[in-house]
Amino acid sequence: MTNLEKYNRIFCDTFQVEENVLNEKFDNTSVEGWDSIKQLCLITSIEETFDIMLDTEDIIGLVSYFAGKDILGKYGVIL
């Protein structure tokens, strides 16, 4: 499985959505149920999958599918 496939799987599992909805509009203002608990689950899954620990600023900044991709880049994870 590629890193992008792993990344997409995390979003699909966390928010119970199909992969085809993961686009630039997939963010915490438009996705139903993207609350602080889901945010923490998302962070935990990302950290575990890619074996990283995000800084607090990045946890706060992970507000969308696209933002997450940029943040992972900072930790050397190429999608």
């Binding site: 935990t44 950290e47 575990e48 620990m53």
Partner: peptide
């Protein structure tokens, strides 16, 4: 930090 590791 630790709560994220524990939750795994």
């Amino acid at each position: 930090i630790a709560s994220r590791l524990m939750s795994r």
